[in-house]
Amino acid sequence: MDVILFLIFAIIAVVCAINVVVQTHPISSAISLVGVMGSLAILYLTLGAEFLAAAQVIVYAGAVMVLFVFVIMLLNAGAETKKGQSSMALFLGGPLLVALLILLVWFVQSRYSETVHFGGFRGGSAQDVGRALFTTYLLPFEVTSILILIAILGAIVLARKEMD
């Protein structure tokens, strides 16, 4: 049952991810990315990360991707026209990519034989995350607020009508 659940969503995630990369129209890529995020949210659930699953849907799929779609629509971005790849990307990126994939798959397969059972970890509820967030991780939590402030400030600086 767990295996089937994993496989279904893993395959959805991979297919969607491939779609993100191969679709020429950004809007299709964006929709596919939402698919990846959704299936990942389910996988988070199987790993016992309830809070993160919710956050994934709300923050990522809900907020970030909406922003993306909004910008795509706003700019009325069409499909990619130019198909010629820059040679540097092909020559440098291709081998790098294959090496990365082989390396990662190899080393990941060679270890970690623990298995995941649905419900095998119950420490990821909102309560648990919340407690950690306001004790051990209080500092990063507070500091992240600066980050949000910068994001707001940055968006204002870049998108404002004119300098004064």
């Binding site: 980050l147 910068i150 940055g154 404002r160 300098m163």
Partner: peptide, 23 residues
């Protein structure tokens, strides 16, 4: 490492904006 990451992002994101400051 979590502080490294957040510090890095604070520094970087503001630098991105500064680089594009003259819009």
């Amino acid at each position: 490492l979590i502080m490294v990451f957040i510090g890095l992002e604070i520094s970087s994101i503001s630098s991105y904006v500064l680089a594009g400051y003259l819009r």
